[in-house]
Design a protein around this nucleic acid. Structure first.
Lengths: 180, 180
DNA sequence: GTCTATATCAAGATAGAC
DNA sequence: GTCTATCTTGATATAGAC
């Protein structure tokens, strides 16, 4: 499935970057090809249709997200809400605006809302794991939702927080997850 | 600015409904005109460009949201976090899937991310009001974020909750806002 | 103020050479 | 596996009648 790095990775990166810059509706195969440094023909060899490109973008985003969560899980000390803290750390502790990849979701949504199904399933898995391990499942899920809210707002560009405010909010979420 | 009801309201309703059904990228002027029962020429008389239509959609969404918040504010008893509770009630206590109007945001975002600026400003106002009245501003903002997360996930179609789970989460958020 | 054309162009996808 | 055409459609916007 992920054989040679080839142009595939380049194309997926280019597409994700472009959405953030020009809006999901203007994400054209021409623009993606140009940005990725391949021709439209070459692009369509790897992804036979625009939908298949968007599908791959969503899948890669979900895969990477879960990988970051596993990594965070391993380096975190034991304690209550370990999974929750891992998910929060994995998603929150990156530069606010460094979430270009997340724009993949918007492009997919704009083309065909059903393409986001893999993301919905990933959320289901995350919430199930978080709720199961927690002594206060409701609180844990609310904290997970707050993180999602912050991230989604940043993707949409509607976050009302400046850098310092964001830092404070993130702190508050993480603190609550530690049970303080 | 909002002179006669004319076709404007019909058009805005039709457009918002359509996004949810066919995806932001397929929201065409033809489709909007057909759904609204006007011709494309008639549509373009009211909204001289697609962007101006989307701009109006965003503005109306924001206005209605703040209006609901004011209404909720009036009917809520005094007590701690009154503004927060009003905002939460206004946004959460409607049918989960009855948020067609919210899809206006996605259509605008897909066309031009800058069109969401009025929404960002509205969030800024909301957060400022919520934080100012609260004795624990950080907690209040986290709860607001959780609500935003739930709503945005529902708009995107990535919410992992079924009806009963959603009810529970909403309960948990509202309870926390009451300081319990 | 609303309609019916129609000009114009952008974008997805195909065909076939290299 | 990547490229350069090219076909075809669909969508924005304009012009001008009613």
């Amino acid at each position: 499935m992920a054989g040679r790095p080839s142009s595939r990775a380049q194309v997926l990166d280019a597409a994700a970057e472009l959405v953030a810059e020009i809006g999901a509706r203007h994400l054209t195969l021409d623009a993606v090809a140009a940005r990725a440094g391949v021709s439209k023909g070459g692009l369509l060899y790897n992804f036979p249709s625009k939908e298949s490109l968007l599908q791959a973008m969503v899948q890669r985003f979900v895969d990477r997200q879960e990988e970051r969560e596993r990594e965070a899980m391993e380096r975190l000390p034991e304690g209550p809400n370990r999974t929750l803290r891992a998910v929060l750390a994995a998603q929150l502790e990156r530069a606010p605006m460094n979430c270009k990849a997340a724009h993949s979701m918007l492009a997919a949504m704009a083309e065909n809302p059903q393409l986001l199904e893999p993301a919905r399933c990933a959320s289901e898995r995350a919430v199930a794991a978080i709720a199961q391990e927690s002594e206060a499942p409701d609180v844990a899920v609310v904290l997970w939702l707050a993180m999602e809210g912050l991230l989604l707002q940043e993707i949409l560009g509607t976050s009302p927080f400046d850098g310092e405010q964001r830092r404070q909010v993130v702190e508050a979420i993480l603190r609550a997850a530690e049970g303080k």
